[in-house]
Each structure stands twice: as C-alpha cells, then as structure tokens.
Amino acid sequence: MSTRIFKETHFDASHRLMHYEGKCSRLHGHRWEVEVWMEGTIDATSKILLDYNIIKQVVEVYDHQVILNKDDPMVKALSPFQLPVLTDGDPTSELLAEDIRARLNRFCGEAGVDARVTRVRVWESDGCYAEVDAE
C-alpha cells in the first residue's frame, strides 16, 4: 500500500540570474515558499512515511543564504565573507524545485526510507511558482 504526505515550508534567501536581462540579474531576495508531495511505504514500527521535519531540514540548506550559479563571478567576491549555496545553472525557481526533489530523494535512498518525491512546487513570489513532478 502506498501512502502520500504533503509538507509546506519556506526559506528566505537571495539569488541572482546571471543569464537573464532585467531586474533579476541583480542580487535580490525572496521569501521562497516550498510545497513537497511524497509517497511510499510507511515504516512498520513508527507508522511514519518520512518525518515532516526531515523535509524542512533539507529545505533549510537555503535559508538565509545567497544562492548563486557556480560559474557566477560573484562567488569569488562573496566567498571570503560567506560561502554561497552553489547551483549548476542560474538559481531559478525551476532549478531550485528540481534540486529540492533530488536532495530529498537522495536522503531517502541513503537512509533506506521507501519514499520518493512526487512533486515539488517552489513559489518565488505571490502568483509565481515552478513545479517539478517525479521522473
């Protein structure tokens, strides 16, 4: 039997889009809202699929951070003061949704938890979100 769970959380972080022409090419911040759907088999003893706090902890890697493309020249300038969270490409809401999905699936695999992400939605602002579904 498969069980589904849902968790909503958020983080505050800044980012910039190196390959975008417009305001978002400048460093700026958001309160990012994250929604995660997961499914799998509940643990026979605890009767829990995955502790909701684990989802929150995985997302908190971005909280109060600067998120930058690993190739952004700003990385070198910022690193003596704060190590940014680096992404393979511009840190768009689309890329962050995929990154969160991958991080959670990797955690479950390494922890031996029979759970997988079915959907992640990352809200960059009111009315604007990106969503990825299971592959």
Rank of each mutant, 00 (worst) to 15 (best):
M1R: 14
M1W: 03
M1P: 10
S2C: 06
T3V: 15
R4I: 08
R4D: 15
F6V: 02
K7E: 14
K7D: 04
E8R: 12
T9M: 04
H10C: 15
F11T: 02
D12K: 04
D12S: 12
S14L: 09
M18W: 08
H19E: 09
Y20P: 03
Y20L: 09
E21D: 15
E21I: 07
K23D: 07
C24R: 08
R26Y: 09
R26K: 14
L27C: 07
H28G: 06
R31Q: 11
R31F: 03
W32R: 03
W32P: 00
E33D: 11
E33Q: 09
E33V: 04
V34I: 11
V34T: 01
V34W: 07
E35A: 11
V36R: 09
W37I: 06
M38H: 08
T41M: 10
D43Q: 02
D43C: 00
A44L: 09
T45G: 14
T45C: 09
S46D: 13
S46A: 12
K47E: 13
I48L: 13
L49Y: 04
N53A: 15
I55K: 07
I55R: 06
I55M: 05
K56E: 15
V58H: 00
D63P: 00
H64C: 05
H64V: 04
I67M: 01
K70T: 04
K70C: 12
K70R: 14
K70S: 10
D71N: 14
P73T: 15
P73K: 15
M74E: 15
V75R: 02
V75P: 10
L78G: 00
S79D: 06
S79P: 01
F81S: 13
F81Y: 15
Q82G: 01
Q82A: 12
L83W: 04
L83H: 10
L83K: 12
L83Q: 14
P84M: 00
P84W: 07
V85D: 04
V85I: 15
G89I: 01
G89Q: 05
D90K: 09
P91N: 06
P91A: 06
T92H: 08
L95G: 02
L95E: 01
L96Q: 05
L96P: 03
D99N: 08
I100V: 09
R101P: 01
R101D: 05
R103N: 12
R103F: 06
L104H: 03
L104R: 05
C108R: 04
G109F: 07
G109M: 12
G109A: 12
A111V: 05
V113R: 10
D114K: 05
R116T: 12
R116G: 07
V117Y: 09
V117M: 10
V120D: 00
V120L: 06
R121V: 12
W123T: 03
E124L: 02
S125N: 10
S125W: 01
S125C: 12
D126H: 07
C128I: 14
C128M: 13
Y129P: 02
Y129L: 05
A130F: 04
E131I: 07
V132R: 02
V132H: 01
A134T: 06
